[in-house]
Write a protein that binds this DNA or RNA. Structure first.
Lengths: 229, 229
DNA sequence: AGACTGGTTAATGGAGGGTTAAGACTTCTC
DNA sequence: GAGAAGTCTTAACCCTCCATTAACCAGTCT
């Protein structure tokens, strides 16, 4: 049984859609703004996302973009009255898989949802830094095509560094990324960074992970200013 | 670089499209009938198929249908002047992934091709991962041509993993796939995964089913990097 | 010299994952 | 309807890997 999430702030339309989709055997949750959508997606796992573009708090484009940045490869279908070419292009840029212009026939929606439902989207972003490539949805880290192994904490730290790259990240920020609010003894970060460095740079001559004295750490492609300070 | 195949019998339009697509950096082959298309697809591997519906010898619908019956999960985008709901539905029934009505803007074609290109179609009854092949309609699982036996629960778990491949699937999602909403004691999944692994990887040197520490499990063809986190 | 920053190493405890076997439940067959 | 074969769920146990410590080392600045 397929689970859908509809994000749509027009309550009348939303109700019609949900009723129709549930009649067709889908389980269909509904939210009316982007932030609520983001939260629900974190908690539950959906097979397809139906996004309106015009929504309060966080619009459909922003929601989709955020998901892709986080490596979430859930199939997305945008439903919107905006029918200009440029609107569609913006939608695809944001990482949607399909774009349906209102008003539409219910049967076409159904057909497109079904076409989307049994696979993952290919629209996720990858974080790259020189020859280092991090695929968030697949949880695969490659350097020069060679797979590297990371611990869960190491993964969180590297993700934080890659997002900031080439800027440095403070120890505080790294600890927040790894543990949230309650940090363990400050020594722990040292060890994790040591292990991370061993994993990322260990078997390569050129190092990507640099210590910025008095500031924190940075991951940078080679040639972007040399080690330390 | 992405390789496309355009099947279109209007030679003027075909030429325009090929020129445009090649300008955009795609490699674009062209055929003007369905049988020729079928033959080319067998020989080469394309990333996306652009199909006109009206074609001599074998039309776009028939071509798409044949491919899906053969278990070919190449992404398909139908390009046609037929804009009636019923035409679209026939297209999706035949197994297309997207449907674009002529005349269309080149930029929209481009965006949709890009959206399709990075994944496999979900419109197929066969899932493959390296040498592992799963026929959903016939419920047959082959590895290297050798039949493997799976319990019903094992089958559901593997199907879930194969659809997500090469991305990992969380334990939560696997439990949903196997049992729906009311999960048994969490231990059960461990045992099932153990049995599944024994069935899939047991008598082979290279393992496809990987544990992603802190995340879940993933099934990946060999060469996607070894047991990563 | 002493304090400070950052790197390295080894030991510990614990969570997460792997393995096994036993019993309950289904399904199939005769 | 009885027996057999297969399947699902539990619980118990084991082991590996990961996170966290603490202790120690090497520079550098005052």
């Amino acid at each position: 049984m397929l689970k859908l999430l509809l994000a749509e702030d027009d309550l009348d339309l939303a109700q019609t859609l949900v009723q129709y989709l549930e009649l067709e055997g889908f389980i269909c949750d509904h939210v009316s703004n982007g932030i609520a959508g983001l939260n629900l997606i974190k908690q539950n796992s959906y097979d397809v996302l139906l996004l309106d573009i015009n929504m309060p708090r966080l619009d459909g484009l922003g929601l989709c973009q955020r998901l892709r940045e986080q490596g979430n490869d859930i199939p997305v279908l945008m439903l919107t009255a905006r029918d200009q070419l440029n609107d569609k292009l913006l939608g695809f840029d944001a990482g949607t898989d399909d774009y349906l212009v209102k008003p539409f026939e219910m049967e076409e929606l159904l057909a497109r949802v079904r076409a989307l439902s049994h696979r993952r989207s290919g629209q996720v972003q990858k974080l790259t830094c020189g020859e280092l490539q991090m695929n968030l949805s697949e949880k695969i880290l490659l350097r020069n095509g060679q797979a590297l192994k990371l611990s869960p904490t190491g993964w969180r730290l590297l993700e934080c560094l890659m997002r900031a790259s080439p800027s440095p990240v403070t120890r505080e920020a790294l600890m927040d990324a790894a543990w949230g609010d309650d940090h363990p003894d400050s020594n722990s970060l040292k060890v994790h960074m040591y292990n991370l460095r061993k994993a990322v740079d260990g078997s390569f001559s050129e190092s990507l992970l640099h210590t910025i004295s008095g500031v924190g750490f940075a991951i940078r492609p080679p040639g972007t200013g040399k080690t330390n300070v």
